[in-house]
Design a protein around this nucleic acid. Structure first.
Lengths: 204, 204
DNA sequence: GAGAAGTCTTGACAGTCGTCAAGAAAACGG
DNA sequence: CCGTTTTCTTGACGACTGTCAAGACTTCTC
């Protein structure tokens, strides 16, 4: 009865419901993208009715930004284990590259949704604040990997966090598109590319 | 009367009209993006009526793919002059970087439209063929720059065309987003980043 | 200049969209 | 158990969408 988990205020329940709704919505958004995923379709692929969205979210933009924020909040810790377990620079690179490939296979819909949202933010000003914030967390995520890699290698990073993220994101996006287009070898290519790129990110 | 330009078949006129319509459409598409640019809005911002679109194009997708193809067809020759005029590796890099910055300022709407279309192709299979083709021409464009740079420097490229394009595209996309978000210094940053990256693309 | 072919306008069609309001249902507090 | 508050469903609204067809207009051909 009076366990710790029973200590839930109404506000907590409200938030919990928002999270559950966002989780459902993410499935549909990852499948259809930002523009083609209607609120009715999102609701149909969930346990909720289409009207309930406006009870928990102000409007469609509010829902979608919340969804992507929620996904990315956990996403940015994907490589924490890689960083924590690494003992050699080569081992870190290998684990990092493997994890990159793994997430393309496992979460391609989520990644394309992110790139969709980021592209839309180039047109829709109201998306830019959230996109810039998320982009920053991704940059930090990458920098934790590169920084640890530099430490293990006993060398200094030769690039800013911004550049390191830009370069890796370019390769990742390319691989994601190739994977979704069923091109052959894109995943192995990505792995090899990361192995080649990482040493370049460090000063000689 | 019987000048060379008067030698126009009806098919030529038809193509010319398609090009003119596409030119108008590109303005609206660059402003609103793929999803929010309706055929009526496109027609309103042109000298045509909304029905004429279906006389020259099969449907909306047909129009938009034609538009982006048309734009990119000229876009891929942007650096031809840079390549042709270059006499030293450093000069080539400087001219290339300047041109990259210039096109962000001058043609930001067109570039964001391209990234929009490429993102959409991750969801819409019918876009993928065109996107992959255009992406290949962009890769070739970049490789003409990198290849000439390698020749002038008397060294060998250390990356495949695919990787070189992926890396530069990542930086470019980042700078474009920053520019559209009115972030300070993104253009100078891009210039500096290209100066640093290009030597890395060559073998020691 | 009459007829034919090509070009374009207009208006309508069947859907879909985001949004909201009225009220049912459920959960809660005493 | 009743009254209140929160939660959710249902149905409707106006606006907007891509598409198309009927006909007007222009251009060309003989």
């Amino acid at each position: 009865m009076t366990t710790a988990t029973a200590r839930r205020t109404p506000a907590d329940k409200h938030d919990e419901r928002r999270r559950a709704l966002a989780d459902s919505a993410l499935r549909t958004l990852g499948e259809l993208g930002y523009a083609r995923a209607s609120l009715r379709e999102i609701a149909n692929n969930s346990e909720f009715s289409h009207g309930v969205v406006h009870y928990y979210f102000h409007d469609k933009l509010d829902l979608i930004v919340y969804c992507v924020r929620q996904y990315k909040a956990t996403c940015v810790h994907r490589y924490d284990g890689v960083v924590a377990d690494a003992t050699t620079p080569e081992g870190l690179v290998a684990a990092f590259a493997d994890k990159l490939v793994e997430t393309i296979v496992d979460e391609a819909p989520m990644h394309r949704l992110w790139y969709d949202l980021r592209s839309q933010s180039m047109f829709e000003e109201s998306l830019r604040e959230a996109v810039l914030q998320i982009d920053q967390t991704l940059e930090d995520m990458i920098w934790r990997v590169v920084g640890t890699y530099a430490e293990l290698a006993g060398r200094e990073p030769a690039m800013t966090p911004h550049v390191a993220y830009g370069l890796l994101d370019g390769l990742f996006q390319q691989a994601l598109l190739g994977y979704l287009c069923d091109l052959e070898g894109v995943l192995d290519d990505l792995r090899a590319q990361v192995h080649r790129l990482m040493p370049v990110l460090l000063a000689p």
